[in-house]
Amino acid sequence: MGFWDILVYVTWSLSATMLIWMLVDAFMISSQYDEAYLMSSREGSEDEVVHGVHMDKEMT
């Protein structure tokens, strides 16, 4: 078995390891956390920064 054959096997193995890691982690998160919490993000919810704030409100 030459270098390139070994490299191909290593490549497949790395891909499979990372993919399985992500799937297992995603499953664990789903089993540990409430769905409502995982999906509670809202756009602009932490953006009291300046974005979209009314000019009158900003000036006061």
């Binding site: 030459g2 270098f3 390139w4 191909v8 490549t11 497949w12 790395l14 891909s15 990372m18 993919l19 890691w21 992500m22 982690d25």
Partner: peptide, 23 residues
């Protein structure tokens, strides 16, 4: 000097590794 390398494992690794990083 190696002319018959299969590109598929490298295509998959690129996508999966970068997805893992993004994850």
């Amino acid at each position: 000097g190696y002319t018959s390398l299969d590109t598929k494992p490298f295509v998959v690794l690129t996508v999966v590794f970068l997805a893992w990083l993004n994850y």
